[in-house]
Write a protein that binds this DNA or RNA. Structure first.
Lengths: 170, 170
DNA sequence: ATTTAATTGACAGTATACTGACAATATGGC
DNA sequence: GCCATATTGTCAGTATACTGTCAATTAAAT
């Protein structure tokens, strides 16, 4: 006789779902970042934006959003806050009146080089509880998974976009 | 002669950071959930709350927040929205005038049982790109890591709290 | 050259997240 | 019973995230 009753709902429907675990690790990652970097008044998102502007001086907001896979609308506010803190400046692009180009200020470059050790500490701390071999395994699988699921997010990562602001003579 | 120059900043400072990868997977997880469950008007957070109220009828908001590790303030708004959709009801606790007890409505129970297959599909899709053995490995490591880092988040998971509303005669 | 498309930055609206505070209420020590 | 303390739900404030829309501007089609 087949069992036609629906399976009873248990908390496993939450606790074992990868989506729940990723949410939880994100919470933890942000908490550790904020704790380690308290002295610098930078959030994880602001840090990522600052790094990218550092490695791509003169990038615009739309390309920046593609390079770190952050929503374009969200990024507008992030940029405003970085500008208010005087870590970046926006300059109008001479050849395209729509575009505003982003550059680090001296204070931005300074805070970036100063915060690095604390960021590294936070990143290390979140994997610390695992054995070193397991850390490597997790990081490798996670990197793969993010890459293979790239198109699934509304704002896929487009690292190539970053080069376009350097001129396209080819 | 030692090299005293600071290492140049590259995008690896972002792309290889576990915190960035967790953020990215969370984005992807939410996007897939929303896509698969579009018909049901439920977010991942609302789904988790609904499951928990289903397995713990009569739980209050504070304990609910401990059981799914969501911020108490945030959860207030989530509960309001679930109530507005008439998926849950709040009843004042007779023995404690501060507390409001949470229960599923019939509509809430119905939507929960209907949405389950779509949730499962979304959860499966986000691990789909990995080989089955790698999925198991990742999930195991992720579960470990969340558990071992539990105290690092501002709102640690307290699954035991869930039992307290059932009376404490022991 | 003119019409059409696409792009850019901005905005409004909704939904998590977290911090810190608060009034109402309960609880414990005495 | 009284007082210090803790708990509960709520609120204001800040910061991601995403949807959808818009005007200004540019590029593409013909």
């Amino acid at each position: 006789m087949p069992n036609n009753k629906p399976a009873p709902v248990t908390m496993d429907a939450v606790y074992t779902a990868p989506g729940y675990l990723f949410r939880r690790m994100q919470q933890i990652a942000v908490a550790l970042f904020i704790e380690e970097c308290r002295a610098f008044d930078l959030t994880p998102v602001q840090y990522a934006a600052l790094v990218t502007i550092s490695t791509h001086p003169g990038i615009d907001a739309t390309r920046l959003s593609a390079v770190i896979a952050f929503d374009r609308s969200t990024l507008g506010n992030v940029i405003e806050r970085l500008q208010a803190k005087e870590f970046i400046v926006r300059k109008p692009a001479p050849e395209d009146k729509r575009v505003k180009l982003l550059y680090l200020t001296k204070a931005g470059a300074a805070v970036l080089s100063e915060i690095m050790p604390s960021v590294d500490k936070a990143q290390a701390r979140m994997l610390q509880p695992l054995k070193p071999a397991d850390r490597k395994t997790l990081l490798a699988l996670l990197t793969q998974l993010v890459d293979l699921n790239n198109e699934a997010s509304r704002v896929p990562l487009r690292a190539e976009d970053a080069l376009e602001h350097l001129g396209r003579s080819g």
